[in-house]
């Protein structure tokens, strides 16, 4: 049986897969292209269609998740606009570095190793910090008003250090944090540089960078990161669509699933404990780094089976983490009666 030229089983698979990715995307502000593009490649779609359709899907999901975070007061548009400016400049410089490495024949190896080390390094750092934090962010959810002054103890030391540099002009971001405009642009430029260098969306770098380097509360870092992805995903989709790389028969069912998942994931950031979000985020990155390492090794050794193992690992970690997010939300709802109001939003 076919609907709009797609087999029913494929349709169900796409909607289900979209649902899982949507939960992760709404919860972490990352994970879209990380999961969808390899899945489409494994299913036999040409690379340009896999990347282009993956990007259009990320764009659509980011719109939905941003709208949800907006409703929860978790998007800082001023910070998002500055991050877009700094990131765009960084991506251009990152691309130039890649072109230079290509000209001397080192691009593939250097990018692959950097990607694995960065994913694994950020994963270990975030997980370690979350497991060792004993105050501040361990008490219940973090769904208080986004404009409320945040507890100074919840701000990481490195962010306090960055906030201590009073290089004018200073700006106030959500949570009442004062930070130099130049520091925000510097962090955005650095994350953009890594994003352009690695050829990835960069949510896994930007979200922790906003929290650990600027001191933005995690839910606002996620919401603002998603706002930025709306623009980068929209532009990327447009560029790939010009070359015929966006297939609506793929994007539409994936989006139908992720729209629901993104609502669940975004709402869960207001229910689940902030420390738990960081642990899941870190574990997701660690699973991703092992998977990317397998893929790099598969490419290097010419063994396709390692690419399949890599995809299975990504899928498994995504499934486990999205399941854990839903499970933690259910547990929090049963323990905290006041979480009901946030979930109902």
């Amino acid at each position: 049986m076919e609907i709009l030229g797609i087999a029913l089983t494929t349709l169900v698979l796409f909607v289900g897969f979209g649902l899982m990715v949507g939960v992760l995307f709404g919860f972490f502000g990352m994970g879209g292209s990380f999961l969808v593009t390899p899945a489409l490649l494994v299913m036999g779609y040409p690379a340009s269609v896999a990347v282009g359709s993956g990007m259009a899907f990320v764009f659509g999901t980011a719109v939905i998740a941003t709208l949800k975070h907006h409703d929860l007061g978790q998007v800082d548009y001023k910070l998002g606009g500055l991050m877009i400016a700094g990131t765009t400049a960084g991506i251009e410089v990152g691309k130039e570095i890649v072109l230079h490495l290509e000209s001397i024949g080192l691009a593939s190896g250097v990018i692959g190793v950097t990607y694995v080390l960065l994913l694994g390094g950020v994963g270990v750092f975030v997980t370690y910090n979350a497991l060792n934090s004993d105050g501040g962010d361990s008490g219940g959810g973090h769904h208080d008003g986004a404009d409320q002054e945040i507890d100074p103890d919840a701000i990481p030391d490195i962010a306090k250090k960055i906030q201590s540099y009073h290089v004018p002009p200073m700006m106030t971001i959500r949570g009442g944090i004062q930070v130099s405009l130049w520091m925000v642009l510097a962090v955005a430029f650095a994350t953009g540089l890594l994003s352009g260098f690695l050829g990835v969306g960069g949510g896994f770098i930007r979200m922790p960078a906003m929290f650990y380097l600027i001191g933005v509360p995690v839910p606002i870092a996620v919401g603002t990161d998603l706002f930025e992805i709306v623009f980068s995903g929209g532009l990327g989709s447009f560029l790939y669509a010009q070359g015929g790389g966006v297939d609506l028969s793929i994007v539409a069912p994936l989006l139908a699933g992720s729209a629901l998942g993104a609502r669940i994931g975004s709402a869960a950031t207001g229910i689940v404990d902030e420390g738990e979000i960081k642990i899941y985020f870190g574990l997701m990155l660690l699973g991703g780094s092992v998977a990317v390492a397998f893929r790099q090794l598969g490419d290097y050794l010419g063994m396709d089976v390692l690419n399949t193992v890599s995809f299975a690992l990504i899928l498994l970690s995504a499934f486990l983490v999205s399941g854990a997010v839903v499970y933690s939300s259910v547990v929090a709802l049963r323990q905290e009666p006041d979480a009901t109001a946030v979930a109902a939003d």
Binding site: A56, G60, T61, V63, L67, S237, V246, V251
Partner: peptide, 17 residues
């Protein structure tokens, strides 16, 4: 065509939301 396609994705996202 690319603008229309991106517009359709945006519209679908808003309708689904």
């Amino acid at each position: 065509q690319a603008i229309v396609l991106v517009g359709v994705v945006l519209l679908e996202a808003i309708v689904l939301y």
